[in-house]
Design a protein around this nucleic acid. Structure first.
Lengths: 123, 123
DNA sequence: ATACCTGGTATACTCTGTTATACTGGTTAC
DNA sequence: GTAACCAGTATAACAGAGTATACCAGGTAT
């Protein structure tokens, strides 16, 4: 019983499983929270202006949007460009790095739609 | 200028974009937080026992695991079965519904691995 | 008898993500 | 002149996600 248990204990958690958990948690760390993915999605869909992005994400406050945009700029997910027009205009754009989240976002949108079908209509 | 602006305001946010944001936020609502996806991943990878799941997710406390498992059982993501062995044993298993998160988890693991390569080695 | 295993619960605390509300400073429209 | 738009900042407060630590009741191995 003892050796069996020890063997099981070691085998029950093979190396690549630990690696996968780590990778998963890294990703959650970067795009976690209520707003990051919606913001990425909005910008990738062509919204560039602060108020346009805000309007495209129901419920977000200027404070949260401002904070998240700053953090995402620091993390090189987006670029912020100020144009010296009159009045001054500001444009946010997604970087190539940001676009690597595409598959995740699509998978989540897909899940959300199916989930809704399941709940509301007959999926 | 005025009509143009109004038109832009309406057109800048087509129906399906709002739908996508909603779907995205629904998904985030269900699997959001630090631990749900790692737990789902662990159980889907064959871990059934409380302590095995806990060991497979570095850093999680018994309190958080207990809470999340309860919530996930309520939401029909997992089943909890008590076996009247001596001593009593408990097994958690993922439902088919839970397995629909597969594509999201895989996409996130994939992103996490590539992200690590980018940071550590030359990707 | 001592130490460790199982599957958790209890208590207390921190932290920060999130909300609410108001405000700034400049521009444009009516 | 007043109301609305832009791109935000300031301040305060809250709720709950997450942490830390200890503990319980049973069983098992030496």
């Amino acid at each position: 019983m003892h050796l069996e248990k020890q063997a099981k204990k070691i085998l029950s958690f093979p190396r690549n499983q630990a690696e996968e958990v780590q990778a998963l948690q890294d990703t959650i760390y970067v795009i976690g929270g209520k707003w990051k993915l919606p913001i990425i999605n909005s910008i990738c869909n062509g919204n560039k202006r602060f108020r346009d992005i805000q309007r495209s994400i129901p419920g977000i406050t200027t404070r949260m949007l401002s904070r998240e945009l700053k953090e995402m700029e620091l993390n090189k997910l987006i670029t912020r460009t100020v144009y010296a027009d009159i009045p001054v205009s500001v444009e946010y754009e997604s970087t190539d790095y940001c676009k690597t989240f595409g598959p995740i976002i699509l998978a989540m949108i897909d899940w959300g739609k199916k989930h809704k079908k399941k709940i509301t209509g007959k999926g």
